[in-house]
Each structure stands twice: as C-alpha cells, then as structure tokens.
Design a binder for these strands. Structure first.
Lengths: 198, 198
DNA sequence: GTCTATAGGTGGATAGAC
DNA sequence: GTCTATCCACCTATAGAC
C-alpha cells in the first residue's frame, strides 16, 4: 500500500510552500509584471509547466504571497500587544522585531510594497491588501494611543504617527534591495522609536 | 517663410516635455514593466507610433524621467543649504518643501521608488540612480552634520538619520497611491522633523 | 506528478502612407 | 510630423507524453 491520502496532501503542501518561498524573492525584487513564470520556476528549481499544478496562474501566486505577508504583519502587531509590559515596551518590542525582520528577510514587506506599487492588484489580492491596510493600521493606532495614555508617546494624532511608521518600514524594505550603499549603517531600534518619543 | 529652425526645436522640446509629464504619471502608478507604450501614448493624447519620434524606446522614456527626478532631488537639497538661517532651519525648510511636494505631485519621488523596485534598471538609468543615491545622500548627511555641530540635531550617526529620512519620504510617496485610507491625516513638518530632534 | 512542446495572445518596435 | 498597419519576439497557459 502506497502513501495515504493525508501524506500526499502534506507533500503537496510542502512543495507548494517551497514554491511560494522562491516566488516571494523573485516578486519582491522585480515586481508582479516583470516577473516571468520562467523566473519563478527557475527559482524553485522546477519546470515551467509544473507551476500550474500548484497555482492556476501567475496572479494567484502573487495573491497567495500578499495574503501571507498580510497575515504575518497582523500577527506581529497582535503578538506585540499580548506582550507583558507597558505599551511603550510593546512598541519597543515591535520596532526591534520588525527592523530585524526587514534586515534579514525584506521580501515579506517588499511583497506589500510591490502590491501597492503595482496599482490595482485585482480581486482577492486587493481585498487582502485592504484588510491589511485597515486592520494592521488600526491595531497600530490602538497601541500608540495606549502609549499616549501612559504619557510615553508624543501627543501627535496617533493615526499620523502610525502612517509615518508604516511608511518608514516600507521605505526601509525598499531601499534594502539597492546594490550600492550597503555600507550605510542599518537603523537601530532607538532611531525608529524616536518617532514616538515625547 | 515658415518656422525657423529654432522655433521647430522649441516646439519639439515642448511636445517632448508634455509627453514626459504624461508618462511620469503612468510609470509612477504602474511601474516600468506594467506600463505599455499604448498607455503612454493615450496619457499624452498622441498616437502609439509617435512616441518613437521622441524616444527610441520605452526604457529611454523611463530613463529620462529618472534623470529628471534625480536632478530635482539634488537641486532641492542644494537649495536648502543655500538658504539663510541655521542648519536646523534649513532642515525645517527642506522637510516642509518635500512633504508638500510629495502631497501635491507624488509622481516625482515615485519614479525613483519604481526605479528601485524594478531591480536593475540598466545602463544610463542605473548610473543616474547611483549618482542620486550617493550625491543626494551625501548632501543630506552634510546638512545633518551641520545641525549636529549646532547642537539642534541628535547625535545619532548622520548617515543613519539620512537613511531613515529617505526611507520615510519614499514610503510616504508610495502610500500616497493607495486608494483607501485617504482620510489619514497627512504628516506635518514637525512629525518628520521629530526624527532629528535631540 | 513532472516534464516538453505548442497554441494563442500581447506588446514592442518599424515601415510606410499621408 | 503624425498616424495606421504590420512584423516579430516573447510570454502565458494548455495539451499531452512519460
């Protein structure tokens, strides 16, 4: 008796996962339109046609990646808010974690940058992005407001601060793919936190 | 006697200018790869083939726009440094001016965002980008260091501050093309300046 | 499941009429 | 100078062999 159905499912899921990981790097660097199916296949080490066994088309691959990055982002803020300690310490934790994540694997936020820059990622992807933009943003605002209650965060409108913070993170991820200027010192947590300091 | 040669040159330059302006908006929103020559022609109100009378190919149009944005950026910092007043006031002026520029016409910085995101814009465009990244960056660093001498700017390494500032501006330009979230209050000069405050 | 080969479509660049 | 028509390369998606 060969593999069970469950095992097959697991294998397929793993392969799909590996493909996504490869595709994420490609999309992050070149964007949706400039990334060819050939590139995705080559990056994943599989043949051109096989990609279509895991996803119906190119946009679906991209959509899955956007969904993934969105989830990751939302989860990160949620995690920060569950942390013990004051709101300020939660902000601190979040900044450290995000800066570290961007430095080590910028492709996650870069997928979102590309999705934004690609104007009109249609259908389900657009919906995921919208959920992200609103849910993630709202969570962040709440955290900042808590810090303001506490007196550790400047009284600038929380939405404005959250907006700036998001822009900075995306900008940092974007500039991370520049070949030159690698000698520039990567920002420390405290530099990012300076945005909130009273 | 018809138009003189000089007049013809002027006319051609003007048309070229109008085409560039239309193309800038298209490229800024969709990126290099996703923008079709049809889009450029339509945006400029001319026929498909006529674009090729002004530029040899699509990349050349994009290259000209990158060059333009680069010049604009460099000039802006130079202008700030020639201003009367303390380095801190010059930084203040720069932030106000840039924030205003991004809000009114984000397509200038967005061209640079797209150039970065498009990975390897080859040949002359890459060179222009490199000039930008280094020259603009260096000017900014110098300005920040002057502010530090003066004691108005935090002692964080100037390169790190300049890097953060650049990332923030590009991120703001990027998020400016999001359709939703237009109700978010646009950042004020002081919020951006907070990055430098001691 | 995985591959290669192919059909169909899209878009960049050019030729040539006006 | 400006346009339309055409060529050709490339890319997506599918069919079908193994």
């Amino acid at each position: 008796m060969p593999r069970t159905e469950a095992q097959n499912q697991r294998l397929k899921a793993e392969r799909r996962r590996a493909l996504l990981e490869a595709a994420r790097r490609v999309f992050a660097r070149k964007g949706l339109a400039a990334s060819k199916m050939t590139d995705l296949a080559a990056a994943a080490g599989i043949s051109y046609g096989l990609v279509y066994h895991y996803f119906p088309d190119k946009e679906s691959v991209f959509a899955a990646l956007v969904e993934e990055s969105v989830q990751q982002g939302i989860q990160l803020v949620a995690e920060a808010r569950q942390h013990s300690g004051s709101p300020w310490e939660q902000l601190q934790w979040l900044c450290t974690r995000v800066l570290d994540g961007v430095q080590r694997e910028p492709s996650f936020p870069l997928i979102l940058v590309q999705a934004h820059a690609s104007e009109s990622v249609p259908g389900p992807v657009g919906q995921a992005l919208e959920r992200y933009s609103s849910q993630f943003f709202q969570q962040l605002v709440t955290l900042i407001e808590a810090g303001q209650e506490e007196g550790r965060v400047v009284r600038t409108p929380a939405a404005e601060l959250a907006w700036m913070w998001l822009a900075t993170i995306q900008g940092l991820a974007l500039m991370r793919i520049l070949p030159h200027m690698n000698h520039v010192p990567y920002p420390k947590t405290n530099t990012l936190l300076r945005l909130f300091a009273p």
